[in-house]
Write a protein that binds this DNA or RNA. Structure first.
Length: 590
DNA sequence: TCTGTCTGCCCC
DNA sequence: ATTCTGC
DNA sequence: GCAGAATGGGCAGACAGA
């Protein structure tokens, strides 16, 4: 099949919003392919050339792609960038440049296989000169392909296909290919969950039918898609939703799935990256403490201070995700793994077993020790007790709690109400919000292109320096109508250059600057120290004297979102730097 | 060798 | 991560 | 309620160029 033919299908799919219709079109597309092509297509639809657990990344995003388009079509990079700002989509950008009459001929006979192979080479190119190599390969593709194919070939590496469907719909469509209905989706999904390789799944289905997936079972060394939690804002709702449930503390670390066979252990991150070499302390802990020949367990890894025993904030924990200096960091900030799931043990899959059974089996196979701790748990039947546990968790400095449905299965890869998270920041306390003023905004991408705005920069006021200093950009919490409204209001306040009394890091520069008159109430989970936001930041000359380094980090908001507009407030009434600093200091002691 | 820019289905 | 929206 | 697509702060690593 030619790539052009695929592109024509993708165009049809992009224009369709009805998911059932999308499912049908995909099935129709598959019918024109062979077993090899369907694998490549499904893989490319994920924006990859290999499954997530293979460490093959494109290493190409917006900036590199702009250069590749410039090189491939012999246009100035600044022109490409300008058109991208306008269109909000690099695919549309390349297509529209290509559609301008140029006299340059392009081939229409490139096969999917040929394109896939170039993308694969691009992804596996590394080392000195590799950026030039990637740009050359991408540029040649763009030069060779027709305009419509260019739209999609450019969107694949940057991971923004924007077709309105993703993995779950692909699984539906594979069912549709075989049966003409979605009835095989659960079977296909079950296989995909434990072997998240869409190329393998789709090729196998095409060549062997649904029977081909019968032997796909959890396997030590192949990561299982991780379950996610839905959110709720109080204990009563949780009890009403799932009844009696198990409550666990929610730690602020990162997910780890540990696979053990004998004395060999492999670790995977939430996005299935193999992180075994990064966390030797957890590997040793599992070998020592997990009493099963084969097991797959899951938990949250959190760093702690070995001298005080205190758990560390996320910003320190995440420093353990590294490739170099691993042993030194492991000594300085060792990890503990709070294990909360058993997914597999000695030939038996626990995925379909109720939570209570997984939990009791987990407790049996994890021996007491220093590194792996079975997560605390209390079974609760009433909202009052749930709130008590929640309050206790919050006062211990934790993020909140997780509630797990007692008879719920492990829903790999999906987010549903078998797991519910209840976080401090959801509990709607006024103390968790601050008032800020809008300083500028950026043009949006994709769906937001039409609004002319995608996010806005906010700041607090430092009455000492008499300057507005930044704390976050806001890209969520507004309805489509509110985006349109704030764009209109902002444009009336537009100024040519950044106002003198704005203190903004280069990283946070906006497309459009406005007079500081719009006041917004912002919710966030916490205040963190920031290298790029300027609230309270102090700089010093760099060693060479040619630049500036951060002497004292600024303050920023973690998970910022709009709570509401505060048209009743004047800009000079927003939170001051002094107040923000006080809030930052207060969150440390609880 | 140092520094800045860019990237990551990054981590959250 | 959070949030909004079409189905 | 699911699935998808907008968007956030901030970390280490990989290159390129000075």
């Amino acid at each position: 099949m030619t790539f052009k033919r695929l592109a024509e299908y993708l165009q049809r799919l992009e224009e369709t919003t009805l998911r059932n219709k999308i499912t049908e079109i995909l099935a129709e597309l598959y019918k024109e392919t062979n077993g090899e092509e369907i694998g490549m297509i499904c893989q490319l639809l994920q924006g990859r050339v290999a499954p997530l657990y293979e460490a093959i990344e494109f290493g190409v995003a917006d900036k590199m792609m702009i250069r590749a388009i410039g090189q491939g079509l012999n246009v100035e990079i600044t022109d490409v960038a300008a058109l991208f700002r306008k269109t909000g989509d690099l695919g549309i950008t390349v297509e529209s440049i290509k559609n301008q009459p140029s006299g340059i001929k392009y081939k229409e006979r490139n096969t999917i296989t040929e394109v896939y192979e170039v993308l694969f080479r691009l992804a596996t190119s590394g080392g000195e000169g590799s950026q030039e190599e990637k740009i050359k390969l991408m540029g040649e593709l763009i030069k060779d392909l027709d305009p419509l194919s260019c739209r999609y070939v450019v969107r694949i590496p940057i991971g923004r296909l924007r077709l309105g469907f993703s993995d779950m719909t692909v699984l539906d469509s594979l069912s549709w290919m075989i049966k003409g209905t979605k009835e095989l989706r659960p079977t296909i999904e079950k296989a995909y969950n434990v072997r998240p390789d869409i190329s393998f799944i789709s090729s196998t289905l095409k060549e062997k039918g649904i029977k081909g997936l019968a032997q796909v079972k959890p396997q030590v060394g192949t990561p299982i898609l991780m379950a996610r939690a839905e959110r709720m804002t109080n204990g009563a709702d949780i009890i009403e939703k799932i009844g009696k449930c198990a409550i666990e503390p929610k730690y602020d670390g990162f997910r780890v799935q540990g696979h053990k066979r004998g004395n060999k252990v492999e670790l995977f991150s939430r996005n299935l990256e193999n992180v075994t070499l990064m966390y030797p302390d957890i590997v040793k802990g599992i070998i020592k403490q997990v009493k099963a020949n084969e097991a797959i367990i899951e938990g949250e890894a959190v760093a702690f201070n070995p001298n005080t025993g205190e758990y560390l904030p996320f910003q320190e924990t995440v420093q353990r995700k590294r490739k170099y200096n691993i042993e030194a960091y492991a000594r300085e900030i060792p990890l503990k793994l709070f294990a909360f799931e058993l997914l597999y043990r000695d030939g038996i899959s626990y995925l379909g077993k109720p939570f209570e059974e997984r939990r009791s089996e987990l407790e049996k196979i994890v021996a007491k020790g220093d590194t792996i701790l079975v997560s605390q748990e209390e079974v609760v039947g009433d909202a009052k007790r749930l709130e008590e546990i929640f309050q206790d968790a919050v006062s211990r400095g934790l993020e909140g709690v997780m509630a797990k449905k007692l008879d719920g299965i492990y829903r790999a890869g999906s987010r549903d109400f078998n797991w519910i998270k209840y976080k401090r920041s959801y509990a709607g306390k006024l103390a968790d919000t601050i008032d800020c003023v809008v300083l500028g905004y950026d043009y949006g991408q994709g769906k937001r292109t039409g609004f002319g705005i995608g996010d806005f920069l906010i700041g607090v006021y430092d009455d000492k320096d008499e300057k507005f200093q930044t704390v976050a950009k806001i890209g969520t919490g507004l309805t489509d109508e509110e985006w349109k409204k704030i764009k209109l209001r902002s444009d009336k306040l537009k100024v040519k250059n950044k106002p003198e009394n704005y203190d903004v890091d280069k990283m946070m520069e906006c497309d459009v600057w406005i007079t500081p008159l719009i006041v917004v109430e912002i919710r966030a989970d916490e205040i963190t120290r920031s290298p790029v936001h300027t609230a309270g930041r102090v700089m010093k000359p760099s060693i060479s004297g040619k630049a500036f380094d951060v002497e004292v980090a600024g303050l920023a908001l973690r998970f910022p979102r709009l709570e509401r507009f505060r048209d009743d407030k004047k800009p000079m009434e927003v939170t001051t730097l002094k107040e923000l600093k006080k809030l930052y200091e207060m969150q440390g002691k609880k």
